[in-house]
């Protein structure tokens, strides 16, 4: 660190993660501000989470400092295709499982999730989704007797 240009950034990954941790820690401490910390004898609900969050913040600070003095990895690229499609699938499943039920939720979610892969083959995916839906319905609802609503359409007074 002899350069005149001040501190050189040696590990962007550590810098960014450190900053995120500090921010998260501050946020948690702020979230806990309404709760009491209590005493040694009767600890309050905020005691442990607050000090844990502060320790995380300190850890973040160390990472930030290290990022200037120790070489580390560069930031990695995020590949968003997979996460975006799969998260969409999860949202769809969560939104449709109660109503209209699994027989709609499962194939929809699977069709959307499938596009998370670059190698997706739509026709194959459709067949897979239908087969999996039927197999899971038989397995979970009938063989294992699980509380998984299959088809719930109040308009047609369907509740299966």
């Amino acid at each position: 660190m002899s350069g005149a240009g001040g501190v050189r950034l040696r590990s962007p990954q550590n810098l960014v993660s450190g900053l995120i941790l500090i921010a998260a820690s501050a946020f948690v401490v702020w979230m806990l501000s309404g709760l009491s910390q209590g005493t040694m004898r009767v600890m309050g609900p905020a005691m442990l989470p607050r000090w844990t969050a502060i320790a995380i913040g300190v850890g973040g600070l160390v990472l930030v400092i290290l990022s200037a003095i120790r070489d580390g990895d560069a930031l990695e690229r995020w590949h968003l295709r997979g996460p975006v499609f799969i998260l969409a699938a999860l949202v769809i499943f969560a939104g449709t499982i109660r109503q209209p039920g699994f027989l709609v939720a499962a194939p929809l979610a699977m069709l959307v999730a499938g596009f998370g892969s670059r190698e997706v083959r739509p026709r194959e995916l459709v067949i897979f989704a239908v087969a999996m839906t039927i197999a899971c319905a038989l397995l979970f609802r009938f063989a294992l007797n699980q509380a998984l609503p299959m088809l719930v359409v109040p308009a047609l007074s369907l509740n299966f």
């Binding site: 799969i86 999860l90 979610a109 699977m110 999730a113 499938g114 892969s117 190698e119 194959e124 995916l125």
Partner: peptide, 8 residues
């Protein structure tokens, strides 16, 4: 490409 759909 199908396996992960099943996992999900």
């Amino acid at each position: 490409r199908l396996m992960f759909v099943g996992i999900v």
